[in-house]
Design a protein around this nucleic acid. Sequence first.
DNA 1: CTAATTTGCCTAAAGCTATTAGGCAAATGC
DNA 2: GCATTTGCCTAATAGCTTTAGGCAAATTAG
Lengths: 189, 189
Amino acid sequence: MVRAGLTTERLTRAGAELADEVGFDQVTVSALARRFDVKVASLYSHLKNSQDLKTRIALFALEELADRVADALAGRAGKDALAAFADAYRDYAREHPGRYAAARFRLDPETAAVSAGARHAQMTRAILRGYDLTEPDQTHAVRMLGSVFHGYVSLELAGGFEHSVPDAQESWAWIVDSLDALLRNRATP
Amino acid sequence: MVRAGLTTERLTRAGAELADEVGFDQVTVSALARRFDVKVASLYSHLKNSQDLKTRIALFALEELADRVADALAGRAGKDALAAFADAYRDYAREHPGRYAAARFRLDPETAAVSAGARHAQMTRAILRGYDLTEPDQTHAVRMLGSVFHGYVSLELAGGFEHSVPDAQESWAWIVDSLDALLRNRATP
DNA sequence: CTAATTTGCCTAAAGCTATTAGGCAAATGC
DNA sequence: GCATTTGCCTAATAGCTTTAGGCAAATTAG
Protein backbone atom coordinates (compact mmCIF):
# COMPACT_ATOMS: atom_id res chain seq x y z
CA MET A 1 0.00 0.00 0.00
CA VAL A 2 1.20 3.51 -0.76
CA ARG A 3 2.46 5.62 2.13
CA ALA A 4 0.95 8.91 3.18
CA GLY A 5 4.23 10.69 3.85
CA LEU A 6 3.49 11.87 7.34
CA THR A 7 6.02 13.99 9.18
CA THR A 8 5.81 15.94 12.40
CA GLU A 9 6.11 19.12 10.33
CA ARG A 10 3.23 18.32 8.03
CA LEU A 11 1.08 17.20 10.91
CA THR A 12 1.74 20.43 12.75
CA ARG A 13 0.86 22.57 9.76
CA ALA A 14 -2.25 20.58 9.02
CA GLY A 15 -3.15 20.84 12.70
CA ALA A 16 -2.89 24.61 12.47
CA GLU A 17 -5.19 24.65 9.44
CA LEU A 18 -7.60 22.36 11.19
CA ALA A 19 -7.58 24.69 14.19
CA ASP A 20 -8.56 27.62 11.99
CA GLU A 21 -11.41 25.60 10.50
CA VAL A 22 -12.92 23.96 13.56
CA GLY A 23 -11.34 25.74 16.52
CA PHE A 24 -8.23 24.89 18.46
CA ASP A 25 -10.20 22.98 21.10
CA GLN A 26 -11.59 20.68 18.44
CA VAL A 27 -8.18 19.73 17.13
CA THR A 28 -7.87 16.02 17.82
CA VAL A 29 -5.48 13.30 16.77
CA SER A 30 -8.44 11.51 15.21
CA ALA A 31 -9.54 14.45 13.11
CA LEU A 32 -6.00 14.93 11.90
CA ALA A 33 -5.73 11.25 10.95
CA ARG A 34 -8.97 11.55 8.98
CA ARG A 35 -7.56 14.53 7.13
CA PHE A 36 -4.57 12.44 5.99
CA ASP A 37 -6.79 9.43 5.34
CA VAL A 38 -4.73 7.36 7.67
CA LYS A 39 -5.45 5.34 10.81
CA VAL A 40 -5.20 7.17 14.11
CA ALA A 41 -2.45 5.00 15.55
CA SER A 42 -0.19 5.98 12.67
CA LEU A 43 0.18 9.49 14.00
CA TYR A 44 1.74 8.24 17.18
CA SER A 45 5.03 7.56 15.41
CA HIS A 46 5.26 11.29 14.72
CA LEU A 47 3.60 12.78 17.79
CA LYS A 48 4.03 11.82 21.42
CA ASN A 49 0.37 12.43 22.15
CA SER A 50 -2.45 14.91 21.84
CA GLN A 51 -0.78 17.41 24.15
CA ASP A 52 2.36 17.23 22.04
CA LEU A 53 0.35 18.04 18.93
CA LYS A 54 -1.22 21.08 20.57
CA THR A 55 2.11 22.27 21.88
CA ARG A 56 3.63 22.07 18.41
CA ILE A 57 0.74 24.01 16.91
CA ALA A 58 1.14 26.60 19.64
CA LEU A 59 4.86 27.03 18.97
CA PHE A 60 4.19 27.27 15.26
CA ALA A 61 1.56 29.96 15.76
CA LEU A 62 3.74 31.95 18.16
CA GLU A 63 6.56 32.03 15.59
CA GLU A 64 4.28 32.94 12.75
CA LEU A 65 2.66 35.73 14.71
CA ALA A 66 6.03 37.05 15.88
CA ASP A 67 7.22 37.11 12.25
CA ARG A 68 4.19 39.08 11.20
CA VAL A 69 4.55 41.56 14.00
CA ALA A 70 8.24 42.00 13.24
CA ASP A 71 7.42 42.75 9.61
CA ALA A 72 4.75 45.21 10.62
CA LEU A 73 7.08 47.05 12.99
CA ALA A 74 9.99 47.35 10.60
CA GLY A 75 10.87 50.98 10.10
CA ARG A 76 8.15 52.37 12.31
CA ALA A 77 8.22 54.20 15.59
CA GLY A 78 5.92 56.00 17.99
CA LYS A 79 2.22 55.87 17.36
CA ASP A 80 2.84 54.41 13.96
CA ALA A 81 4.56 51.42 15.51
CA LEU A 82 1.85 51.07 18.12
CA ALA A 83 -0.88 50.97 15.48
CA ALA A 84 1.06 48.55 13.29
CA PHE A 85 1.62 46.24 16.22
CA ALA A 86 -2.03 46.36 17.20
CA ASP A 87 -3.22 45.68 13.67
CA ALA A 88 -0.78 42.85 13.07
CA TYR A 89 -2.06 41.21 16.20
CA ARG A 90 -5.73 41.68 15.44
CA ASP A 91 -5.45 40.77 11.77
CA TYR A 92 -3.68 37.54 12.59
CA ALA A 93 -6.41 36.58 15.04
CA ARG A 94 -9.12 37.28 12.49
CA GLU A 95 -7.41 35.45 9.66
CA HIS A 96 -6.32 32.56 11.85
CA PRO A 97 -8.59 32.26 14.87
CA GLY A 98 -7.50 28.72 15.63
CA ARG A 99 -3.82 29.55 15.47
CA TYR A 100 -4.42 32.62 17.58
CA ALA A 101 -6.08 30.45 20.22
CA ALA A 102 -3.16 28.04 19.91
CA ALA A 103 -0.73 30.87 20.59
CA ARG A 104 -2.45 31.32 23.95
CA PHE A 105 -2.14 27.66 24.84
CA ARG A 106 -0.43 27.31 28.19
CA LEU A 107 3.05 25.90 27.70
CA ASP A 108 5.13 24.32 30.40
CA PRO A 109 8.01 26.60 31.45
CA GLU A 110 10.77 24.73 29.58
CA THR A 111 8.80 24.80 26.34
CA ALA A 112 7.84 28.43 26.85
CA ALA A 113 11.51 29.24 27.24
CA VAL A 114 12.31 28.02 23.73
CA SER A 115 9.18 29.58 22.20
CA ALA A 116 8.84 32.89 20.40
CA GLY A 117 7.34 34.29 23.59
CA ALA A 118 10.49 36.25 24.30
CA ARG A 119 10.39 37.88 20.85
CA HIS A 120 6.86 39.04 21.56
CA ALA A 121 7.91 40.62 24.82
CA GLN A 122 10.90 42.30 23.17
CA MET A 123 8.81 43.75 20.40
CA THR A 124 6.32 45.18 22.84
CA ARG A 125 9.16 46.87 24.69
CA ALA A 126 10.52 48.13 21.40
CA ILE A 127 7.29 49.99 20.78
CA LEU A 128 7.49 51.60 24.16
CA ARG A 129 10.90 53.03 23.36
CA GLY A 130 8.99 55.69 21.51
CA TYR A 131 7.32 56.82 24.74
CA ASP A 132 10.18 57.42 27.17
CA LEU A 133 8.91 55.27 29.98
CA THR A 134 11.20 54.16 32.76
CA GLU A 135 10.78 51.11 34.97
CA PRO A 136 8.48 50.04 36.50
CA ASP A 137 6.16 52.01 34.22
CA GLN A 138 7.48 50.25 31.17
CA THR A 139 6.54 46.85 32.57
CA HIS A 140 3.12 48.09 33.58
CA ALA A 141 2.66 49.39 30.07
CA VAL A 142 3.76 46.10 28.51
CA ARG A 143 1.14 44.34 30.58
CA MET A 144 -1.51 46.86 29.74
CA LEU A 145 -0.95 46.65 26.01
CA GLY A 146 -0.95 42.86 26.14
CA SER A 147 -4.19 42.94 28.08
CA VAL A 148 -6.04 45.38 25.86
CA PHE A 149 -5.04 43.75 22.61
CA HIS A 150 -5.62 40.22 23.77
CA GLY A 151 -8.84 41.17 25.51
CA TYR A 152 -10.25 43.05 22.55
CA VAL A 153 -9.37 40.32 20.11
CA SER A 154 -10.88 37.61 22.32
CA LEU A 155 -14.09 39.52 22.74
CA GLU A 156 -14.28 40.26 19.05
CA LEU A 157 -13.64 36.64 18.08
CA ALA A 158 -16.24 35.52 20.59
CA GLY A 159 -18.72 37.65 18.67
CA GLY A 160 -19.02 40.26 21.40
CA PHE A 161 -19.18 43.18 18.98
CA GLU A 162 -21.29 41.61 16.27
CA HIS A 163 -24.55 43.26 15.25
CA SER A 164 -23.84 46.41 17.17
CA VAL A 165 -22.76 49.92 16.33
CA PRO A 166 -20.25 51.40 16.02
CA ASP A 167 -18.44 48.59 14.33
CA ALA A 168 -15.44 46.85 15.78
CA GLN A 169 -12.97 48.64 13.54
CA GLU A 170 -13.96 52.06 14.84
CA SER A 171 -13.60 51.08 18.45
CA TRP A 172 -10.23 49.56 17.67
CA ALA A 173 -9.00 52.83 16.18
CA TRP A 174 -10.37 54.78 19.14
CA ILE A 175 -8.62 52.47 21.58
CA VAL A 176 -5.26 52.65 19.79
CA ASP A 177 -5.58 56.44 19.77
CA SER A 178 -6.39 56.47 23.44
CA LEU A 179 -3.50 54.22 24.34
CA ASP A 180 -1.11 56.42 22.41
CA ALA A 181 -2.32 59.47 24.33
CA LEU A 182 -2.13 57.57 27.60
CA LEU A 183 1.44 56.49 27.02
CA ARG A 184 2.49 59.99 26.01
CA ASN A 185 1.04 61.31 29.25
CA ARG A 186 2.98 58.74 31.23
CA ALA A 187 6.29 59.74 29.67
CA THR A 188 9.03 60.55 32.14
CA PRO A 189 9.61 64.32 32.01
CA MET B 1 -31.40 1.67 47.35
CA VAL B 2 -31.28 5.19 48.72
CA ARG B 3 -31.57 8.08 46.27
CA ALA B 4 -28.91 10.72 45.79
CA GLY B 5 -31.30 13.67 45.52
CA LEU B 6 -30.02 15.06 42.25
CA THR B 7 -31.55 18.22 40.88
CA THR B 8 -30.53 20.49 38.05
CA GLU B 9 -29.75 23.16 40.64
CA ARG B 10 -27.44 21.01 42.68
CA LEU B 11 -25.72 19.68 39.59
CA THR B 12 -25.10 23.20 38.33
CA ARG B 13 -23.62 24.33 41.64
CA ALA B 14 -21.48 21.24 41.93
CA GLY B 15 -20.41 21.78 38.32
CA ALA B 16 -19.31 25.31 39.20
CA GLU B 17 -17.25 24.00 42.11
CA LEU B 18 -15.75 21.33 39.93
CA ALA B 19 -14.84 23.97 37.36
CA ASP B 20 -12.96 25.94 40.01
CA GLU B 21 -11.07 22.83 41.04
CA VAL B 22 -10.15 21.30 37.71
CA GLY B 23 -10.87 24.00 35.13
CA PHE B 24 -14.03 24.66 33.16
CA ASP B 25 -12.78 22.65 30.20
CA GLN B 26 -12.39 19.58 32.37
CA VAL B 27 -15.96 19.70 33.62
CA THR B 28 -17.54 16.52 32.33
CA VAL B 29 -20.79 14.73 32.99
CA SER B 30 -18.75 11.73 34.14
CA ALA B 31 -16.74 13.68 36.67
CA LEU B 32 -19.92 15.21 38.02
CA ALA B 33 -21.53 11.77 38.36
CA ARG B 34 -18.49 10.55 40.26
CA ARG B 35 -18.79 13.48 42.62
CA PHE B 36 -22.36 12.45 43.48
CA ASP B 37 -21.40 8.76 43.55
CA VAL B 38 -23.99 8.01 40.95
CA LYS B 39 -23.94 6.43 37.50
CA VAL B 40 -23.38 8.74 34.56
CA ALA B 41 -26.67 8.00 32.84
CA SER B 42 -28.54 9.21 35.91
CA LEU B 43 -27.55 12.81 35.23
CA TYR B 44 -29.35 12.76 31.91
CA SER B 45 -32.72 13.02 33.63
CA HIS B 46 -31.63 16.40 34.95
CA LEU B 47 -29.43 17.68 32.14
CA LYS B 48 -30.05 17.57 28.42
CA ASN B 49 -26.39 16.93 27.68
CA SER B 50 -22.88 18.13 28.34
CA GLN B 51 -23.45 21.42 26.54
CA ASP B 52 -26.52 22.04 28.66
CA LEU B 53 -24.46 21.54 31.81
CA LYS B 54 -21.84 24.02 30.66
CA THR B 55 -24.47 26.54 29.68
CA ARG B 56 -26.08 26.33 33.10
CA ILE B 57 -22.75 26.82 34.83
CA ALA B 58 -22.10 29.80 32.58
CA LEU B 59 -25.44 31.41 33.43
CA PHE B 60 -24.87 30.78 37.11
CA ALA B 61 -21.42 32.37 37.00
CA LEU B 62 -22.66 35.39 35.05
CA GLU B 63 -25.35 36.04 37.67
CA GLU B 64 -23.00 35.57 40.56
CA LEU B 65 -20.42 37.87 39.06
CA ALA B 66 -23.06 40.50 38.25
CA ASP B 67 -24.26 40.37 41.86
CA ARG B 68 -20.76 40.90 43.13
CA VAL B 69 -20.11 43.78 40.81
CA ALA B 70 -23.43 45.38 41.75
CA ASP B 71 -22.51 45.15 45.44
CA ALA B 72 -19.10 46.63 44.78
CA LEU B 73 -20.53 49.56 42.84
CA ALA B 74 -23.23 50.47 45.34
CA GLY B 75 -22.75 54.03 46.51
CA ARG B 76 -19.63 54.70 44.47
CA ALA B 77 -18.95 56.98 41.55
CA GLY B 78 -16.06 58.22 39.41
CA LYS B 79 -12.67 56.65 39.89
CA ASP B 80 -13.90 54.95 43.03
CA ALA B 81 -16.52 53.10 41.04
CA LEU B 82 -14.03 52.24 38.32
CA ALA B 83 -11.61 50.72 40.81
CA ALA B 84 -14.36 48.84 42.62
CA PHE B 85 -15.62 47.42 39.35
CA ALA B 86 -12.15 46.39 38.30
CA ASP B 87 -11.38 44.72 41.61
CA ALA B 88 -14.70 42.90 41.79
CA TYR B 89 -13.99 41.47 38.40
CA ARG B 90 -10.42 40.44 39.10
CA ASP B 91 -11.14 39.10 42.57
CA TYR B 92 -13.93 36.92 41.25
CA ALA B 93 -11.64 35.47 38.61
CA ARG B 94 -8.94 34.70 41.14
CA GLU B 95 -11.31 33.16 43.66
CA HIS B 96 -13.28 31.26 41.06
CA PRO B 97 -11.17 30.69 37.98
CA GLY B 98 -13.43 27.95 36.66
CA ARG B 99 -16.57 30.02 37.05
CA TYR B 100 -14.83 32.97 35.47
CA ALA B 101 -13.97 30.83 32.46
CA ALA B 102 -17.58 29.62 32.44
CA ALA B 103 -18.80 33.21 32.33
CA ARG B 104 -16.92 33.58 29.04
CA PHE B 105 -18.49 30.47 27.55
CA ARG B 106 -20.10 31.34 24.25
CA LEU B 107 -23.88 31.21 24.61
CA ASP B 108 -26.31 30.98 21.73
CA PRO B 109 -28.15 34.28 21.18
CA GLU B 110 -31.43 33.22 22.80
CA THR B 111 -29.68 32.04 25.93
CA ALA B 112 -27.47 35.11 26.02
CA ALA B 113 -30.61 37.24 25.88
CA VAL B 114 -31.88 35.81 29.17
CA SER B 115 -28.46 35.87 30.83
CA ALA B 116 -27.03 38.46 33.17
CA GLY B 117 -25.01 39.76 30.22
CA ALA B 118 -27.23 42.81 29.95
CA ARG B 119 -26.65 43.66 33.62
CA HIS B 120 -22.91 43.59 33.01
CA ALA B 121 -23.24 45.98 30.12
CA GLN B 122 -25.47 48.31 32.13
CA MET B 123 -23.08 48.41 35.03
CA THR B 124 -20.18 49.24 32.79
CA ARG B 125 -22.15 52.13 31.35
CA ALA B 126 -23.08 53.23 34.86
CA ILE B 127 -19.41 53.68 35.69
CA LEU B 128 -18.90 55.81 32.63
CA ARG B 129 -21.60 58.20 33.77
CA GLY B 130 -18.91 59.64 35.99
CA TYR B 131 -16.87 60.62 32.95
CA ASP B 132 -19.22 62.62 30.74
CA LEU B 133 -18.72 60.65 27.57
CA THR B 134 -21.17 60.94 24.72
CA GLU B 135 -21.81 58.38 22.01
CA PRO B 136 -20.02 56.83 20.25
CA ASP B 137 -17.19 57.40 22.75
CA GLN B 138 -19.15 55.73 25.48
CA THR B 139 -19.47 52.53 23.50
CA HIS B 140 -15.79 52.62 22.61
CA ALA B 141 -15.00 53.04 26.29
CA VAL B 142 -17.27 50.15 27.29
CA ARG B 143 -15.39 47.95 24.87
CA MET B 144 -12.04 49.14 26.02
CA LEU B 145 -12.77 48.54 29.68
CA GLY B 146 -14.13 45.09 28.92
CA SER B 147 -11.01 44.32 26.91
CA VAL B 148 -8.49 45.51 29.45
CA PHE B 149 -10.10 43.82 32.40
CA HIS B 150 -10.80 40.57 30.65
CA GLY B 151 -7.40 40.59 29.00
CA TYR B 152 -5.50 41.30 32.18
CA VAL B 153 -7.38 38.69 34.15
CA SER B 154 -6.87 36.05 31.47
CA LEU B 155 -3.18 36.71 31.26
CA GLU B 156 -2.85 36.70 35.02
CA LEU B 157 -4.78 33.43 35.38
CA ALA B 158 -2.68 31.90 32.64
CA GLY B 159 0.32 32.64 34.81
CA GLY B 160 1.64 35.39 32.56
CA PHE B 161 2.75 37.62 35.44
CA GLU B 162 4.09 34.96 37.77
CA HIS B 163 7.66 35.14 38.98
CA SER B 164 8.21 38.59 37.63
CA VAL B 165 8.43 42.06 39.09
CA PRO B 166 6.62 44.27 39.73
CA ASP B 167 3.87 42.03 40.99
CA ALA B 168 0.49 41.76 39.34
CA GLN B 169 -1.23 43.91 41.94
CA GLU B 170 0.96 46.91 41.19
CA SER B 171 0.37 46.77 37.47
CA TRP B 172 -3.34 46.44 38.10
CA ALA B 173 -3.37 49.63 40.18
CA TRP B 174 -1.30 51.44 37.55
CA ILE B 175 -3.67 50.35 34.81
CA VAL B 176 -6.79 51.42 36.70
CA ASP B 177 -5.13 54.77 37.36
CA SER B 178 -4.25 55.16 33.73
CA LEU B 179 -7.72 54.29 32.55
CA ASP B 180 -9.21 56.82 34.90
CA ALA B 181 -6.94 59.51 33.47
CA LEU B 182 -7.68 58.39 29.94
CA LEU B 183 -11.42 58.59 30.45
CA ARG B 184 -11.19 62.00 32.08
CA ASN B 185 -9.23 63.24 29.07
CA ARG B 186 -11.90 61.93 26.76
CA ALA B 187 -14.70 63.77 28.55
CA THR B 188 -16.88 65.92 26.33
CA PRO B 189 -16.07 69.54 27.11
C1' DC C 1 -53.18 2.36 55.04
C1' DT C 2 -52.77 0.05 50.96
C1' DA C 3 -52.84 0.59 45.72
C1' DA C 4 -51.68 3.17 41.65
C1' DT C 5 -48.71 6.34 39.59
C1' DT C 6 -44.86 8.98 38.95
C1' DT C 7 -40.09 9.72 39.38
C1' DG C 8 -35.19 8.60 40.04
C1' DC C 9 -31.39 5.97 39.45
C1' DC C 10 -29.75 1.70 37.36
C1' DT C 11 -27.97 -1.65 33.62
C1' DA C 12 -26.83 -2.20 28.89
C1' DA C 13 -25.15 -0.77 24.68
C1' DA C 14 -23.20 1.96 20.77
C1' DG C 15 -20.13 5.47 19.13
C1' DC C 16 -16.15 8.57 19.49
C1' DT C 17 -11.32 9.84 21.22
C1' DA C 18 -6.67 8.56 23.20
C1' DT C 19 -3.00 5.51 23.62
C1' DT C 20 -0.06 1.22 23.49
C1' DA C 21 1.75 -3.17 21.43
C1' DG C 22 2.99 -5.91 17.89
C1' DG C 23 3.05 -7.06 12.65
C1' DC C 24 3.76 -6.69 7.65
C1' DA C 25 5.15 -4.17 3.67
C1' DA C 26 7.57 -0.40 1.52
C1' DA C 27 11.63 2.29 1.21
C1' DT C 28 16.56 2.54 1.83
C1' DG C 29 21.44 1.01 2.14
C1' DC C 30 24.85 -2.31 0.73
C1' DG D 1 19.10 -8.62 -5.10
C1' DC D 2 19.19 -8.84 0.01
C1' DA D 3 19.05 -6.92 4.73
C1' DT D 4 17.58 -3.35 7.50
C1' DT D 5 14.98 0.33 8.80
C1' DT D 6 10.86 2.82 8.81
C1' DG D 7 5.91 3.67 8.22
C1' DC D 8 1.40 2.59 8.50
C1' DC D 9 -1.66 -1.15 9.85
C1' DT D 10 -4.65 -4.23 13.02
C1' DA D 11 -5.99 -5.19 17.61
C1' DA D 12 -7.04 -4.02 22.16
C1' DT D 13 -7.88 -1.25 26.43
C1' DA D 14 -9.79 2.62 28.63
C1' DG D 15 -12.58 6.94 29.25
C1' DC D 16 -16.47 10.19 27.97
C1' DT D 17 -21.23 10.87 25.80
C1' DT D 18 -25.65 9.68 24.94
C1' DT D 19 -29.97 6.76 24.35
C1' DA D 20 -33.25 2.97 25.68
C1' DG D 21 -35.51 0.35 28.76
C1' DG D 22 -36.19 -1.56 33.71
C1' DC D 23 -37.01 -1.76 38.69
C1' DA D 24 -37.61 0.33 43.07
C1' DA D 25 -38.61 4.30 45.88
C1' DA D 26 -41.40 8.24 46.69
C1' DT D 27 -45.75 10.36 46.09
C1' DT D 28 -50.66 10.58 45.42
C1' DA D 29 -55.29 8.62 45.49
C1' DG D 30 -58.86 5.83 47.15
